[in-house]
Write a protein that binds this DNA or RNA. Sequence first.
DNA 1: TCAAAAGTGTTCGGCGTACACCCATGC
DNA 2: GCATGGGTGTACGCCGAACACTTTTGA
Lengths: 229, 229
Amino acid sequence: MSEPRLNNHQPRQADYPKAAVDVLIFSIRDLGLKIVLIKMKKPPFAGVWTLPGGLVRLNESIDQAAVRELEEKTGLKNVYLEQLYTFGDVKRDPLSRVISVAYFALINSEGISLQTTPKYSAIDWFNVKELPTLVYDHSEMLKVALQRLRAKLQYTNVVYNLLPPTFTLGELRRIYEIMLDCQLDKRNFCKKFLSLGLLKSTDLRREGPHRPAQLWSFKQRTPTIVEIL
Amino acid sequence: MSEPRLNNHQPRQADYPKAAVDVLIFSIRDLGLKIVLIKMKKPPFAGVWTLPGGLVRLNESIDQAAVRELEEKTGLKNVYLEQLYTFGDVKRDPLSRVISVAYFALINSEGISLQTTPKYSAIDWFNVKELPTLVYDHSEMLKVALQRLRAKLQYTNVVYNLLPPTFTLGELRRIYEIMLDCQLDKRNFCKKFLSLGLLKSTDLRREGPHRPAQLWSFKQRTPTIVEIL
DNA sequence: TCAAAAGTGTTCGGCGTACACCCATGC
DNA sequence: GCATGGGTGTACGCCGAACACTTTTGA
């Protein structure tokens, strides 16, 4: 596995690319699909928004690095991350040679607050349709993530990650409509989703000037492959 | 992006993990699904089989690294590689900390010969059902690749990579049967595949003691998403 | 009584699946 | 003439798609 050396004209640790992780956290908020970004403080990228992420260390797996970076830079814990894709163009980071493994997750962000480190000047949710300019190839990462997300919604039960413990079929359908950016027929959606047998009914919710809604919860909150739509 | 330093107890270039690529080349040969492996020469892995691969260099993208490593270690050129998954457990390589981006491709290997470098003692095709012991986490990579391959056969036209320019519907079906490890109904398969409109008929092939077969070719040999089975 | 969201059934067409026999050829 | 793979059509059932009205409540 020893490789031909390049000329030693680079500083320490620069003879090979470094590895990093970047994390895309999605959630449904205010009837839109949002993502967590943090704002950089140091030149040359001061004021620019970026995905939370950082270099992989020697003593941690890349999965662990993603979890650690997510917690350090956003405060989010216990999030189930899934590997998305690895980005390795030579110039993706103009300042140094970094290969980045992107991870993503869906979360329910009700009552959750974000907190970044002093190294960044802000952290916030952004609607994926109205994003600021992002550093590096982070827009590309988002594009890939959205594709994958939409695909996974249709053949897995990942949607449970976005939902609170109980919810109405209307809320469930609204999530699909937001994520897939389309309208879904109410009757067909309910019929199909209930026929999958993933849900169990719980209470009734009476609120607002309309008929009370049946509340449902997922029988199992574990990743499963199912043909949903 | 500067990171806390670990203790400087490691040699040069070991303060961060290195990045590598590994390549899984699949082909149908002798009615079986085969993969290219090379045999290691140097201790401590002398005599053990491995996937072709190696470290990513500073001045190349990871995609380019995969292409370069594939050519260097197998002689294969002009292969369309697709990124599979990135493997980054701390102990996946017991000797050094390496994160590996796996790539895969399907090729038609008729009339193609393999040739590795003097650093390896052999190169050969192996049936994926009768593999020797592999180094590192290469068996895991194969497992992931097979899953992905089977999935992609069903919703894309990737199969064209396995086929010669012209082929019979029987040959096409046989490939699906081998890859999916199941029997497919001849009439339904033909009906479905032809209805996709991906093929155009060319000549007749008369050979062997049976009715001549219609030969087909793909109208386009470019990646396309289609619901096939 | 009005506005708002919840809940519910039927019809139709298309597609996947199961299934069996004749065809053209080389030997 | 026989063995070998090539080629073809129909019937049925299920599922996805389209589509509208009634229910319950709060204000």
